[in-house]
Amino acid sequence: MGKGNMNEQENAMIRIHVMGKTYQVPAGLTIMDAMEYSGYRFIRGAGCRSGFCGACSTIYRREEDYRLQFALACQEMAEDGMYLVQLPFTPAPRSKYNLEEIDPSENVLLQYYPEIARCVSCNTCTKACPQDIEVMDYVQAALRGDIARTAALSFDCIQCGLCTMRCPADIKHYHMAQMARRIYGRYLSPVPNHLEERLCEIEEGVYDNELGKLMAMNKEELGIAYAARIREEAK
């Protein structure tokens, strides 16, 4: 990008509409920054500002678009003519369960989140997901008792709640999927034997001698040892 362009972009202003009022904000801001520039202050509904915490779910509409759009306010760039509003929170109760006591049978997700049986496969949840998760597919996997698939498909979920806000069947997708991942981790994922063995070895003191040597090294010696470490061949 040339220097002239940079200046042009810095000076350019765009219009955003927030709750019926139009504001002029500089181009190149995220939705969250643009709203803050306009004077809104986020006490809730903002968190990491890096697209990971899922606190800043937002809905917007472009002037010439019949569709409502969904995003994270800290990630999506504000555009000229956007209608913006922040969702502070999606009311969605979580079912109470004790992971150690539940029976990880195939219909366990249905037991704690029976409303998944109301899914009409409209796919509205998937369209709302800012993480591009196939949300409906994991709800369907959950309905047929495939916990592993539910866990795998929902892995990138950041619990923003947009799917749940949009669902015509009142499903609490993200809580249900979290339960699936917990059950998967606790009961279904393969146990890494080598890790357990290594932990035992560490407890038994097999590596105490080696660790002691490392602890005694100064920075220079550590650097040399690091450079000379055994590496796995790149495949």
Partner: peptide, 26 residues
């Protein structure tokens, strides 16, 4: 009432019955 159903009750039912019942009665 879905909220009044306990996990124990649901564990005895097949999903085919739940899907059908919820479609017809909720």
């Amino acid at each position: 009432s879905i909220d009044d159903m306990t996990p124990e009750q649901i564990s005895k039912l097949p999903q085919i019955a739940l899907v059908a019942s919820f479609r017809k009665k909720t």
